[in-house]
């Protein structure tokens, strides 16, 4: 199976070689018409163009582009530095503001505390005075009530005694000695708990 294939391939190659030789003999240079082989004139223009482009890029075209790129990089760097500087300035200024604010705040707190203390003292004073006044008024009222009660009792006592004597004489049907009874009633009224 393999042998005829190999033979055939070698025959094939031999045919190819033979044909190529014949072609070369006939055409006198089939290689120049090959699509692989470089053509001299095309290479000439290629070399010319490339060399010209290289020289232009090297000396004319690239330097301004690189210069502007370096300028831009420098500008950006300078701007960045300026921004960093401004940022640090802002930071220090804001720290200062913070400090000042803290001082002001403490001061305000102190003022507030002081005012609060004063107000508290004033309140204590006012409340104390009011309490004292109220107490005084209360005591006054209590004594007044007590004297009133005493007076009422004192004024009521003879009437009660008379009423009691009247009622008793009516019940008993005879007149009673008013003075003895009156002293008994007075005693009862004065001390009602231990005479019963």
């Amino acid at each position: 199976m393999l042998t005829p294939v190999v033979t055939q391939i070698s025959v094939n190659a031999a045919t190819l070689l033979l044909a190529a030789e014949e072609g070369a003999e006939e055409g006198g240079g089939g290689i120049t018409s090959s699509p692989i082989w470089p053509s001299g004139s095309e290479m000439f223009w290629g070399i010319l163009s490339f060399t010209a482009l290289y020289l232009l890029v090297r000396f004319v075209l690239l330097p301004p582009v690189q210069r502007i790129r370096n300028d831009r990089a420098a500008t950006i760097q300078a701007d960045k530095d300026a921004a960093a500087l401004a940022r640090s300035k802002v930071a220090s200024a804001s720290a200062e503001v913070e400090d000042q604010l803290a001082g002001v705040r403490a001061e305000a707190q102190a003022v507030i505390d002081e005012a609060r203390g004063e107000a508290e003292a004033e309140r204590q004073r006012l409340v104390g005075r009011a309490e004292r006044e109220v107490n005084a008024m209360r005591e006054l009222a209590t004594t007044e009530i007590a004297t009133e009660r005493e007076e009422a009792l004192a004024s009521l006592r003879p009437q009660v005694a008379d009423l009691a004597v009247g009622a008793a004489s009516r019940v008993t049907g005879r007149s009673m000695q008013s003075s003895t009874v009156r002293s008994k009633v007075d005693e009862y009224l004065t001390n009602p708990s231990n005479s019963n």
Binding site: V5, Q8, N12, T15, L16, A19, E22, G23
Partner: peptide, 25 residues
Amino acid sequence: TSIAYQVAEVAQESFTADEAKQVSG
């Protein structure tokens, strides 16, 4: 391989050298 084999066979038998070169190529 068999295609190339057959092509080469055909090329050997009935074509001129130039055609044989083309076909086997």
